[in-house]
Amino acid sequence: MKISTIILPLVIFLALFFYAPFIILGYQSFQGLGGEFTLDNYLALVRDPTYLHVILYSIVIAVETTVITLLLAYPASYYVARIASGQEKIILLALLLTPFWIDVLLRSIAIKTIIYTIGLREGYTAMMIGMVYEYLPIMFLPIYASMSRISRSAIDAARVFGANTWDLIRRVIVPMTLPGIVAGSLLVLLMSMTEFVIPSLLGGTQGFTIGSLIYYLFLSGGLWGVGAALTMIVTVMLMVFAFIIAKRTGDITAW
C-alpha cells in the first residue's frame, strides 16, 4: 500500500521509536546469556516460583484495586451525572478531573504524608490506599459517561411502570451502564497491573510487583533476557485483553 508523504513523518517516527523497540524486545527475550536462541527466559518465569509469585501478586493487587474503585466510583458517578446540575455539576467534574494533571509520583508522596499522619507506615494498606486514590478518577470517567447517556425518559419509564428504587438500579441503571463499567474496570485493571511508582514508594517490603520486577531485571539485576520475556508477556497479554474487551464493549454499545 502506498503511503503518502503527509503521514510519512508520523509513520516513520512511530515505526522507529515505538514499534522497532518491541521487535528488539522480542528478539532479546529469546536470547540466552551466550547470545544463542533459547526459550529459557520464558520458562524461567513459569518455573521460578519467585517470578510467578510476583506476577500473581500483581494481578491480585490489580483486581482488588479494580473492585474497590468500582464500588467507590459508581454511586458518585450516578450523583454527578444524574442528580447534580448546573454549576454544581461543573465544579464536581472539574474537581474529579484535576488529579489527572498531577503526576502519580507527586500524589504518591501526598498519600505518604497522610499515611504517616494517621500513624501507618509503608506496607500493603498504604499501597492499596495509594492505588485506589490514583485509579478512582480513571474508573469514574467511563462510568460517568455511560451514566450520562441514559435518557431521562428511560428512568421515568421504569418508574411509571412500577419500578421501585432497587428495581430501577438493578434492572435499568446497572445494565445500561454496563459498557462504562466494563471500560472503566478494564482500564483500571490493565493500568494498575503494571503500576510501578505506587508500590515502590508506598508498598515498602510488600511493594514488589510486575513493575518493580521489570525495573529490577533491567536496571539493577541486568537480567535482560528474563526482563524482556516478562515485558513481552505483559504487553501481548494486555493487547489481547484490550482487543477482546474492545470488541465486547463494541457489541454492548451497538444498541
Binding site: S151, S153, D156, V172, P175, M176
Partner: peptide
C-alpha cells in the same frame, strides 16, 4: 414516551 424510552439492553 415521545422518544419511546424503550430499554436498549432488553
Amino acid at each position: 414516551f415521545q422518544d419511546l424510552a424503550l430499554f436498549p439492553h432488553l
